[in-house]
Write a protein that binds this DNA or RNA. Structure first.
Lengths: 339, 339
DNA sequence: ATGAAAGCGCTAACAG
DNA sequence: CTGTTAGCGCTTTCAT
């Protein structure tokens, strides 16, 4: 803000009423004469009045904004985050819920110890009413910091250590099974898997479910390579897998980005997908559709999960004494062309 | 915030001094006895005090946060934004400058009329001291709205219509020339170009520079296809270009993402890069390095530009009467393997 | 239905 | 060097 913005006082004078009355119509409180309402409204129009959030927050103890924190470690952190459509889906889901309620989502990045401190301070100091956090590593200290500061918090994904905090999550294990069963049903017999980073529970669970599906059908443990949820790591993992066992006829990648990387390698080597090698991804992100061929994948309803997360936080902000809750979503297999 | 947070008053009582003194040590104002400083500091420690931003902002008329607004139109807006490493670089650059100054960057998306209004209100209401805006379309109304609301603003890229606002930008035309000269120097003779969306000045300028470089060397206008700065559109444009003139031996893409798409198509068709077809991109984003082959490209120093943008805004916030300034950066050709 | 007045937590004169 | 005091702009009893 720059020049002297009009205040409630200015509007009141302009309308010939008291500050309290103006405040009432601004906040839609009943018990105000319709004529006076019009009077005030036009005065607001004329003066170009906008309520000062700081002043309002000072008395209501609520700012009408929540922090959406992407938390993790790394140098080119923002660079990595902005290359994965997953985060875009989270943002869209959160925005979808909050926008209608006039709550501002404030996107914050916490990629280092210093950044985490700043972020925690930001909400502790009342710049946000609560925090939504998406961690890209399991042992993220941020949730604990937030909890210790008594900040209403909801996580995307269950925290590594059990703690009294609300979260939404997917049944990753069930999703992994779905992928395994699909490959089996297709008739694949030399099956391999590309896992996620070892420190991320979601990736481990997906792989565990996948393995169990194979084991359940009497198959041995699949050859496995580890990726870090990026396109390149998926490609590299595929190369490694092929080197060890060139006859692979089915591959499961723990997310779509890695599945795409695997597809690229496979195609460059002249393998037909799915005829020679079937590929199943995970997430059903936008990549699944644009990938060539379009990916058969396990759908994670990220937007819905994010919206639910926002709703849970909203509820928690409204009634702080609520017990932490967990909301688990079910994955669905989406069949396209790759597997 | 949840339970009754400790206030200055609490700390003052605990330390046995006045509110003003506590305020002084919190804000690092000199003229406070070292002994008392220690006294206060330990009282702060004990009480777990954090200054309330709303209260502080109310009197200082400054909140210590700036809005970083990604502005444009579209449905899956956040999805698109989160797939282009460009925005990650902007965020990194801005954060790099602001973090050290204890200013919070608040990332906001303005993809619709309603969202724009909310965003403008957000800063008008004092939740941010100013706005940094990155538009993904030329005729973006947001800058004008911000200006009309007297919000200190700095743009990434020169606005479509001349207006009294500060901005940073690249000499896109010069960058285009660099690309054209490179392809020519390589000996390419059947040259084609993949332009950006027609409504984006940056893309037009890059293409214009490129064309002029060819014309300057006595070449005719290159075959041109239009993309929208996405990987897929780059691939599609390459396909179209090849259909019209299969003998292409040099391609310029107006950004790296499209260059990557073109490379994928070329490789799938068995063309060697750069032996059969040389490819030059634009941006020097992370993609340029991970692309196969690594891209020869025109570097746009996005991080530096973003940092400069943050600095300019900071200055403008500190001294509001400053005249708008424009800061133009020079592109540099980065030679890798593709062209 | 409206107004007067208190006060949210903080900073910034101004005294002392 | 420290304390007292007066607001910043708003919401919210409490009277009327």
């Amino acid at each position: 803000m720059n020049r002297q913005a009009p205040t409630l006082e200015d509007v009141a004078r302009e309308a010939g009423v008291s500050r309290a009355t103006v405040s009432r119509v601004v906040n839609g409180v009943r018990n105000v004469d319709p004529d006076i309402q019009d009077l005030v409204r036009s005065a607001i129009e004329r003066t170009g009045y906008t309520p000062n959030r700081a002043a309002r927050a000072l008395v209501t103890r609520r700012i009408g904004a929540v922090a959406l924190i992407i938390s993790g470690a790394g140098d080119a952190f923002a660079g990595r985050v902005f290359a994965d459509p997953f985060f875009g889906r989270v943002v869209n889901g959160v925005v979808g819920y909050l926008r209608a309620r006039m709550i501002q989502p404030v996107l914050l990045f916490a990629e280092s110890e210093a950044a985490r401190k700043q972020v925690v301070d930001y909400v502790r100091q009342g710049s946000a009413d609560g925090a939504l956090v998406v961690s890209v590593q399991s042992d993220d200290p941020l949730p604990r910091m937030l909890l210790a500061a008594h900040v209403p918090t909801v996580l995307f994904a269950r925290p590594a250590r059990t703690s009294p905090v609300s979260y939404v999550d997917l049944d990753h294990y069930a999703g992994g099974r779905l992928a395994g069963e699909r490959l089996l049903a297709r008739g694949c017999r030399r099956i391999a898997a590309i896992g996620g980073p070892a420190d991320l529970r979601a990736g481990r669970q997906r792989l565990a479910g996948f393995r169990d599906a194979l084991a359940h059908a009497g198959h041995g443990s699949p050859a496995t390579a580890e990726g870090v949820f990026t396109l390149d790591s998926g490609a590299a993992a595929m190369v490694a897998l092929l080197r060890d066992q060139s006859s692979v006829d089915g591959v499961f990648a723990a997310n779509d980005l890695m599945a795409q990387g695997a597809c690229q390698v496979l195609r460059e080597l002249g393998r037909r997908i799915p005829e020679d090698v079937a590929v199943v991804g995970f997430d059903d992100s936008s990549i699944a559709v644009t990938c060539r061929p379009p990916l058969t994948t396990v759908r994670q309803p990220v937007e819905e999960m994010a919206a639910a997360m926002a709703r849970m936080l909203d509820e928690q902000v409204q009634s702080p004494r609520t017990e932490p809750r967990a909301l688990l979503f079910e994955p669905v297999l989406v069949v396209r062309e790759s597997g």
